[in-house]
């Protein structure tokens, strides 16, 4: 029973990371209808930027973190402006290939700037040690990730409900033409979505970096495991992304614990195939009705 609870809690905490990545993907998909395959590399870039500010420039964490946020916002903005905007209105394959191309470019940039080895942050960034609740082991960085995921989720919900730009984004998600007709600058909304998503991705990258070390070889592979989470929840749903991330994390943890650790690597992909076979639109996604 104790083992069961431990696996469940581990799953929820790891699922928090997936949920964070899924939130970033959903944010972009919701407003621009582009699925971001470059998410893994964007995470790595964010994590590496924080590393540079901490280790090379030697800022304190409280200066380095806002600087990282600002840099990733700018990067996200430029991604949209330079790569995605010329491709608005193109078929879906073009958008997918564009984000894959972006991921390759970022991979090259990481190799140029930071090299291939896996590096760790210079000091313990997160306060405190791992928490023991009774006999349950709660790893510190996972709790932090989980809290960040929850706060990102809450602030995104509030943002979509009360802030003007958030409302514009929801309107854009409903239909680009209609949104434009009612006076929304759709292109600016796209840019804002990419900027915020790049920031969330950077948070995910930093959290994974604290846990596993930052390396261009490992981070993108974790990001791909968040894809089933996105599909599970439904592509357009913020709540779905969080729930999907948690469920994928929990299932992975149970499979790894009870069946075979090796098997847990591919659990997310099996979940992915099952979702696609039985409920492609996900839990909270919208079924699209198509007209010619």
């Amino acid at each position: 029973m104790l083992l069961f609870v431990q696996f469940l809690i581990n799953g929820i905490l790891v699922g928090g990371i997936y949920a964070l990545i899924a939130l970033s993907i959903v944010l972009i998909y919701k407003s621009t209808r582009v699925f971001n395959f470059a998410i893994g590399e964007m995470m790595a870039i964010g994590a590496f930027i924080l590393y540079t500010f901490l280790a090379t420039v030697k800022f304190s964490l409280w200066i380095a973190l806002p600087m990282t946020v600002i840099s990733t916002l700018i990067i996200g903005f430029f991604i949209e402006r330079l790569a995605l905007r010329p491709l608005i209105g193109q078929p879906i394959l073009i958008a997918i290939m564009a984000t894959i191309a972006l991921s390759l470019i970022f991979k090259g940039i990481v190799f140029f700037a930071w090299g291939s080895p896996i590096i760790c942050y210079p000091e313990r960034i997160l306060p405190g040690e791992a928490t023991m609740v009774g006999k349950l082991f709660l790893s510190n960085e996972l709790i932090c990730t989980f809290l960040i995921t929850i706060s990102v989720f809450i602030s995104m919900s509030l943002f979509f409900r009360f802030i003007k730009t958030g409302l514009f984004m929801r309107a854009t998600a409903e239909g680009h033409d209609l949104a434009q007709a009612s006076g929304i600058n759709v292109e600016r909304i796209f840019a804002v979505s990419w900027a915020i998503a790049a920031m969330i991705a950077a948070f995910g990258g930093i959290m994974l970096g604290i846990r596993f070390g930052i390396g261009i070889g490992t981070l993108p592979l974790v990001a791909i495991k968040a894809f089933p989470a996105v599909l599970f929840g439904g592509l357009e749903s913020v709540l779905g992304a969080v729930i999907g991330g948690l469920i994928v994390g929990i299932l992975e943890s149970f499979v790894g614990g009870y069946i075979d650790p090796k098997f847990s690597e591919i659990t997310p992909y099996i979940i992915l195939l099952l979702i696609l076979l039985f409920r492609p639109e996900g839990l909270f996604g919208l079924k699209r009705i198509e007209r010619i």
Partner: peptide, 16 residues
Amino acid sequence: GLAPFTFGMIILVFLI
């Protein structure tokens, strides 16, 4: 890094 970077650039340039 040269190979992924240039390959990504080529795809992007062709797409655009």
